[in-house]
Structures are given as C-alpha cells and as structure tokens.
Write a protein that binds this DNA or RNA. Sequence first.
DNA 1: ACATAAGGATCGTTCAACAATTCGACAATA
DNA 2: TATTGTCGAATTGTTGAACGATCCTTATGT
Lengths: 228, 228
Amino acid sequence: MNDAVAELEHDRDRLGRSSTAERVADILRERIAEGLFAPGRRLSEEAIGTALGVSRNTLREAFRLLGHERLLEHRLNRGVFVRVLSAEDVADLYRVRRVIEGAAVRHSAGAPPERFAAVRRAVADAARAAEEGRWQDVGTANIRFHQALAALNGSPRLDEAMRQLLAELRLVFHVMDNPRDFHEPFVARNLELLELLEAGRAEEAGRALESYLGDAEELLVRAFAPDR
Amino acid sequence: MNDAVAELEHDRDRLGRSSTAERVADILRERIAEGLFAPGRRLSEEAIGTALGVSRNTLREAFRLLGHERLLEHRLNRGVFVRVLSAEDVADLYRVRRVIEGAAVRHSAGAPPERFAAVRRAVADAARAAEEGRWQDVGTANIRFHQALAALNGSPRLDEAMRQLLAELRLVFHVMDNPRDFHEPFVARNLELLELLEAGRAEEAGRALESYLGDAEELLVRAFAPDR
DNA sequence: ACATAAGGATCGTTCAACAATTCGACAATA
DNA sequence: TATTGTCGAATTGTTGAACGATCCTTATGT
C-alpha cells in the first residue's frame, strides 16, 4: 500500500462531519459560556427550536449532550434549565482542579522547556491583555493557562474533563461583576508558577498551585455567597 | 419543621423519576457492562427500538447519553457501535486512574478508620469471593474497591468520573478469557494497600498503588495486544 | 385567606414520512 | 482478472404533527 495513501488515515476525522444535534449543542454551549443564557434560565424547546430552525426531536438530542456535560439541568416535565451552581458545586470543582492540575505539576516539573510552550503562550497573552486593560481577554487567557497546565498530564481524557470543568466554572464566573479584581491578581502568579515548573522545583510549584486555587475559590465563593 | 420530615430531603432525587431515555440508557449500559453487547457491535435503532418498545427518537436520546459516556461511538449515517478500545485508550484510562486514585491515597492516608469502611468492605467481599472461587464476583468486588478508593477524595464529580472510567475499562475486561488470572493476584494487594492507608503510611501506599496499576495495565495491554 | 377547580402551556413520547447516505451486488469496461 | 460505474435495498438523520401527562396560573367558591 502506498505511503501517501496510508497518510490519509490522519485526516480521517476531518471527514466525518457532525450531526445537527452536535452543532446545535456547540452553539448553545458557546452562548452559555458567554453568559447570554444566564444560569437558571429555562430553554424552551419551542422557542429555541424555531429560532435555530431545527425540530424539537433534534433539539432534545442536543439538550441531552449538554445535560451530560452538566451545563443544562433536566427537570422532568418542566424542561431544561441552564445549570445553577451551588457553593458546594464550586468547592467540588476546585477539588477536582487540585487533583488534575496538581498531578500535572508533579508530573511535569523540570520537563524540557518545549513542553511548556502552550503554558508560556497563555501567560504571555494574559500579561499583554492585562497591560492593555482588556480584562475579559485576561480571563480567557487565564483559562487557557489552566487548560494548558492540565494538558501536561498528556491525557486526552483529562483534557476533556478539564474542558468540561472550566465550562462549568464559567457558569459562575459571571457573578463577578468586576472581572479586573478577579483576574488581575493571578497574572503574576501564573508566571511565577510557570517559572517554578521550568526550574523543576516541583514542591514549591505544588504549593504555589494549592494557594493559587485556594485563593481563587475563596474569591469566587465570597462573591456569590448563596448556597442555593 | 419535623426532623423526620427534614430527613426526607435525602430521598428527593429518588422522587424526580427518570425519563424513558434515561431508563433505556441504564438498560443498555448494563448490557454493555455485562459484555452482552460486544465492542464493535452495531446497535440498530430499528431492532433495539422495537425490542424495548420505544420510539426511534427516544432511543436516539439514550444513544446520545451513552455516546457522551464513551460507551457508544457514533458514526455519522452509519449508526452507533459499542466502543472498541485501543491500546492507547487503555493507557489513558490508567493514566487517569493514577491521577484520581493517587490523589485519594495521598489525601486520606492516616484518616480515621471509619472513613475506610467502604474500602474495607470491598476488600472483605473480594477475599470471600476468592476463597469460594467466584472469580466473577472477585472482579466486581475489585471494582468496588477502586470506586471506594476514589471516593476518599470526597468529590461527587470524581466519583462520577471514576464510575465512567471503570465502565469504559469493562469494555476491555472481557478480553480476559481467564478472569481468575486477572483478578486473583490483586486481592492480597488490595488488603495491603488498605493497611498502608490505615497506618497512615502515605508514601508507601502511593508506591503500592503505582505498582498495582502498572501491573494491571500491563496484564491488560498484553492480553489484547491489538492497537486497533 | 385558603382550598379547589378549570384552562392553557409545555413537556414526554410516539408515529409516519422523506431525503441523504451507506453498502453490497451486479454489470460494464479495460 | 481487476477496476470502475451503477443500481437498489437498508438504515440513518431530521422533520412535523399528534396526543396524553404534567405543571403552572388564574379564576372560582367557601
């Protein structure tokens, strides 16, 4: 068999397009992340179905996907709602972050510099955005930083888990009415963590991460208070 | 408010009943775990729909749920198939296990004995089943052991992740034609790990877990060889 | 004020239909 | 014989309509 032919196997996934339900899910996921659909809001099958021009059945498939990602909540006979996180949810999300990001730090401290390329890029983007006062972008760069951090585990499943986790967290990020106060303090700490990693100082990097996540969690919990 | 009434809150989730799609998903998940639907097998909408007496639309919702759990694989215009794991998948699953179970070990070593109750119960069940030669039951007790181990993290999301992870692993457990060889050696090591935990020897427990998972992974990968 | 009943809206689910796509069989071609 | 083109059956992807069940609101009555 020809080599050039064999190479085509890599492009195989670009072939299988996506179904309507998946594309609808993509759109809704994006809207939710942007906060256009606020937590607690009900998503009417009728309204959204006609708005997107898809049938109720197809839309329900999309809802199932997002429900499984914990972005939507199904209430039987009552419809689907944008998920509302409780304080316990936030605590749990940070618990998981400590596990996943902590493992990444321990696992990759002292690795060759090129492995941190994506992390370094995120740090640089955050710094530039902060300089220019684009606090929204600081937030997204910060998210990319942690996504890249988790990716140091080298596990597709952990990557996916991290993506879902951060999507869930964004549900509650929107309670921060002042994005600057929430994101700015962490720009410097991102850099600090990266340097500890590159220097191979695993212990200190681990502690830096711990305090980092602890502070972020506290800020968040304090900002939205309600347990339910 | 009455105490007995307040307690009812715990049973609230049993109330909300489930939709047909979820119940169908439960049934199929069980069948897949039992190996009755072998990996690679196509699940015909027509066939399964009439067999279960549900419409194609409802069935497709169930398929979406299981697809998101990675137990089924959607191929556009071709149907859904029971997932076939590759060697990389197995490696990744064990990578995640090391992260989750490793965190549990570090997090709970030396905790008060009652926190290990569920773990101890799983160990005892496995031992009894092994004595009586019920190797199938040894396998399920072993799974319960690791589920309980992960639960030491005290995180609902990690519990759920672990459940899905183990369900995925079961897809490949069925390649072990001799369940005794696969499960027996680990009964003693479960007990050993538990004792290290109770004794608060975190370091050694961590190493025991590492070698434990390493050996299990190797056994598994060796047993089914194919990368695809 | 409170319980109850009626009505409307929406969900859960089914069914029938049709276009699009895949797959295998068979014929045509070199 | 090996490759390509074509046809038809089977199945999926998606839609639209339908109907009972359930929830929510509002009106009604005591």
